[in-house]
């Protein structure tokens, strides 16, 4: 076991030996800063408190860089194979694993660790948190959020409406899509306005990231959606009822109707020579 463990970590150790000294001295490149902004900042701040994921200030004091590198490369594997600390951070995230980060490798992890170390020493990091306005939310915001959710109102960037893949309890009918999770309780699940707003500003999930990378949600739209989700959460419902069965039954009903129509349209279809001769003889 010990041998296997060492051999799997060795390449990472080797990489960090080469990478760490280089980036500890140099300021983080624009590329690294952009990477952090696009992939990390929607769930993590540096010194701005917890969002969906933990505040990364002081990370290198809590864990060594080998652990961080391994975690970045395989978040779920590291948590599952880990001990008390790993279980605690999973519990703090309400059992949600960090999604795998596309393009992550030991070299990039080293750059990100260096960036975090430099940012946490600043008085106020540029990643102290996405600023979601704290003005009071109104009924007009809820209405706008609802329209954005359903797609009745387009996102300015041309991003797709939430309802394509998500449902929520109040939208009625057969609900929204279920490719993504039910969003009825997302406001309380992400613990309110700040984390939800940050999440929406740059959706980090594997499915949403490619769609929203070039079509971000504008800050006033984020606020409207937060208002809508806040209103949904106030209903006290955990999730909407599944509508798969009534949908399937309606589909089956339509199919049966179509088969009856085919039989009627082609009621004089050719069924065979002999059969009709016998029928005629019997009728005579």
């Amino acid at each position: 076991m010990r041998l296997i463990h060492l051999s799997s970590v060795f390449p990472l150790l080797l990489a960090s030996v080469f990478v760490a000294p280089v980036f500890a001295q140099d300021p983080p490149s624009e590329e690294t800063i952009n990477f952090f902004a696009r992939n990390c900042a929607s769930c993590h701040t540096i010194g701005g408190g917890r969002l969906t994921g933990p505040d990364l200030a002081g990370l290198t004091e809590r864990r060594d860089s080998d652990w961080i590198t391994q975690f970045l490369i395989d978040p779920k594997g590291t948590i599952d194979a880990g001990g008390e600390y790993e279980q605690r951070i999973l519990a703090e995230s309400r059992g949600v694993y960090m999604p795998p980060v596309p393009g992550m490798n030991a070299a990039l992890a080293g750059k990100l660790i260096a960036l975090i170390e430099q940012e946490e020493q600043k008085e106020k990091s540029q990643f102290a948190g996405v600023q979601v306005s704290d003005r009071p939310l109104t009924a007009a915001d809820v209405k706008k959020g609802r329209e954005l959710f359903l797609g009745a109102l387009d996102f300015e960037s041309g991003a797709p409406a939430c309802v394509s893949c998500h449902t929520s309890a109040s939208i009625g009918g057969f609900g929204g899509g279920n490719l993504g999770p039910d969003l009825t309780a997302v406001y309380s699940r992400l613990e309110g306005r700040t984390a939800l707003g940050a999440w929406l500003s740059s959706p980090p999930s594997e499915t949403m990231k490619p769609l929203f990378a070039d079509h971000p949600i504008e800050s006033d739209e984020v606020l409207a959606l937060v208002a809508f989700f806040g209103d949904e959460a106030a209903s006290g419902l955990e999730q909407s009822e599944s509508q798969s069965l009534p949908f399937l039954l309606m589909g089956l009903g339509l199919a049966a109707t179509l088969l009856v129509i085919f039989d009627l349209v082609w009621r004089n279809r050719f069924r065979g020579v002999r059969r009709s001769l016998i029928q005629e003889a019997r009728n005579a």
Partner: peptide, 19 residues
């Protein structure tokens, strides 16, 4: 699809023909 009734009509039609 931005109006739920239209979305359901389209999906049920698709489902019926798929069946």
């Amino acid at each position: 699809n931005s109006v739920p009734v239209r979305l359901v009509a389209l999906e049920v039609t698709g489902m019926g023909f798929a069946v």
